[in-house]
Design a protein around this nucleic acid. Structure first.
Lengths: 196, 196
DNA sequence: CGCGTAAGTCAACGGCCATTGACATACGCT
DNA sequence: AGCGTATGTCAATGGCCGTTGACTTACGCG
């Protein structure tokens, strides 16, 4: 049972290295996020991209390199930057509570992250990406003493809530939702506090 | 680089189906937790157990069945129950920090769960695992009002720290470790508090 | 209009792995 | 002791996959 959403492309794409490599990257993001590193076959990525396996080698070098590229492309570091420092904790809590208008693309990118985290092969790659694009920015954003350790804690909580949201079956509502938001707010406030 | 901790067993175990299958299960727990489903080879499990691959088939049927068995064996619902309510927050924080004096076995078993929950192969187990065997026990353990919502928050934080621990490369030490533990303790305390 | 090169295709290689069935052997029962 | 069966061993099979190099084709430049 191999699900390959090959775009209905009767006429193949004109020869275009950029378009092809982009299509490959897109397919890679999709498949890696859905199946994880190990269970994703380059042949399938190529098929979904309407390209040949050999082109993956040519454009990206190999599986790991492609994964890294897909990881970078999926990882949006602008998550925290825009947040208001005053309302930050509550904003995040509400976002984690979720609701009707959830950002699918964002959830998707974090699904990718989670899958990456749980494969020993990709964990180092993910760690690198988190260092550069997540921990670093958060640390700077937090500022103050021990920003590094606090950034780790924040990142951990952040990831955890995202995962919880990702795997949640029934949407939160009513009092349960309120309590959830309340507690989550407290958690994030506790982390952001400059003093221990 | 295949790490196989073959017990120094000069003389092979006496013929004993129970002992052998138990050894296989133990090795399976270890390897699956460390490497995840896909990257674990039955040959390695067999080697670690001091047994032959064919016996895995005989005693467990196949890889997936063995994984399921290992999962059940690893799944200790009493993991949380055993925690001291007073020191719980700090205990978890220390466990998440890792390093010396941490309960590696316990962290280990939780990583197993995490891998299991995020492996597409075992995806059907995800809902069951999280809902019945994680959220449920936590809720009961917490007790009090709004235990359900608070259990969600606790689970989220728990998973997040677990992921962070999983992908961390360099062990925490010195002041960074202390601050990390401190903050994490605060987080878990905030969650467990009965009153909002 | 040729022609060089980038873009794309094809097939095979080698490795790894789960599975399997045939075979060997030790244990325990009579 | 002899024998049957549970236990353990071995090697082969077939499939999947990443990688690779040689081959073909289209594009665009002079």
């Amino acid at each position: 049972m191999r699900v390959v959403t090959r775009r209905d492309r009767i006429e193949p794409r004109k020869r275009d290295a950029d378009a092809t490599s982009a299509a490959i990257l897109e397919a890679a993001k999709s498949q890696f996020a859905r199946l994880g590193y190990d269970r994703t076959a380059l042949r399938d990525i190529a098929a979904e991209a309407g390209a040949d396996v050999a082109l993956i080698k040519r454009y990206y070098g190999g599986k790991e390199a492609l994964f890294t590229a897909a990881l970078k492309a999926s990882f949006r570091p602008d998550l925290l930057q825009a947040w208001n420092r005053q309302t930050f904790a509550k904003d995040i809590a509400i976002m984690m509570a979720g609701g009707a208008h959830t950002d699918e693309a964002r959830a998707h990118s974090f699904q990718f992250l989670l899958r990456a985290a749980t494969s020993p092969t990709t964990a180092p790659l993910l760690n690198l990406a988190i260092q550069e694009r997540f921990l670093g920015p958060i640390r700077d954003w937090l500022g103050g003493d021990d920003a590094s350790a606090r950034a780790r804690v924040l990142a951990a909580a952040f990831i955890g809530f995202l995962v919880e949201r990702l795997i949640r079956e029934t949407p939160l509502s009513g009092r349960e939702r309120e309590v959830f938001i309340d507690r989550a707010t407290t958690v994030f406030e506790a982390i952001v506090q400059p003093d221990g």
